[in-house]
């Protein structure tokens, strides 16, 4: 069952009356790893747009609070964290007030954990389309992930409001913020590719997700500062989690903490890119069975 399709657009001498060159498609099984066909994905970018539109529309359908949820989720978590970790447990917060310390981390984290969950279920949730029409399947988890950016933006506006309230003025570091947003996006996409493709075949993924996101929350410096981890070896292993780079980066860029270490960031970024590339190839490899299995 190891097959794939290859499309080679080529031009044939057009027959009388045809203005456009005729598209030639060749469908045949091929073996092993297959090309990502990013050119095709680009050609289908409008499909991506409509899938995103759908995801955004559907997300808060039939909810009372609607898009308010986009910031309520991190905001309420922040309150709980501030009470229990900040006040009761006295967890250090790199010299910034604990609420803003945790909220700065929770904004990218919520983006990550939500898109992770949504992307993982995206292909299974689109079974109806997958079984009936052809388009590059990669568009499904990508659209699902990108549509999470809207939520991120809403939560980010609230973050700015909180920074004003706490009278925190960002330094020029803030110029690097888009890089960390990009890193979060790459991580979400990479994990999303892996899990959405696996979920088609192994429905276990769905049950693993809540545990996975919770576990991931604890190995990411959200409720606590990454400076708590001092042991160099442990620190190196810790940095393998790309979200460490994201969260440290967010704090460094917005709150001007001195948490950012370049080796950590480099490790995180490398892992994220590896996840993205391998995830995309794994997805493409599994893709051919989607319509039969989903």
């Amino acid at each position: 069952m190891s097959l794939a399709q290859a499309e080679q657009p080529s031009q044939r001498p057009s027959s009388a009356g045809d203005q456009q060159p005729i598209v030639h498609t060749r469908i045949q099984p091929s073996h092993g790893w297959v090309s990502l066909r990013l050119d095709e994905l680009w050609k289908y970018r409008e499909v991506l747009y409509f899938l995103m539109l759908r995801d955004i529309k559907v997300r808060y359908k039939q909810t009372i609070l609607g898009a308010t949820w986009a910031f309520l989720q991190p905001f309420l978590t922040m309150i709980v964290f501030s009470l229990f970790f900040g006040r009761l447990a006295g967890v250090p917060s790199d010299g910034v007030p604990y609420p803003i310390f945790s909220f700065t981390a929770l904004v990218p984290w919520t983006f990550f954990s939500n898109t992770l969950t949504q992307a993982s279920n995206s292909v299974v949730g689109s079974a109806n389309m997958v079984k009936k029409i052809y388009f590059p399947r990669l568009a499904i988890p990508i659209a699902s992930t990108l549509s999470g950016v809207v939520d991120f933006c809403i939560a980010f506006v609230v973050l700015i409001g909180m920074m004003l309230a706490f009278q925190i003025v960002p330094t020029l570091n803030v110029l690097f913020l888009p890089l960390f947003v990009l890193l979060a996006l790459i991580t979400s996409l990479g994990v999303g590719f892996w899990l959405s493709a696996m979920n088609v075949q192994f429905r276990d993924v769905r049950y693993t997700l809540p545990f996975l996101t919770q576990f991931w929350l604890f190995i990411t410096p959200i409720a606590y500062p990454s400076s708590l981890i001092q042991d160099p070896l442990l620190r190196a292993v810790y940095a393998l989690n790309p979200m460490v780079g994201v969260v440290d980066g967010f704090r460094w860029a917005l709150l001007n903490t001195d948490t950012l270490s370049l080796p950590t960031l480099a490790t995180s970024a490398t892992v994220a890119v590896v996840l993205l590339v391998t995830g995309a190839f794994y997805f493409r490899r599994m893709e051919k069975t989607f319509a039969d299995v989903v």
């Binding site: 097959l3 794939a4 399709q5 469908i27 099984p29 051919k288 319509a291």
Partner: peptide, 8 residues
């Protein structure tokens, strides 16, 4: 033919 699934 419509590329939804692939031939063996």
């Amino acid at each position: 033919l419509s590329q939804i699934t692939e031939p063996t």
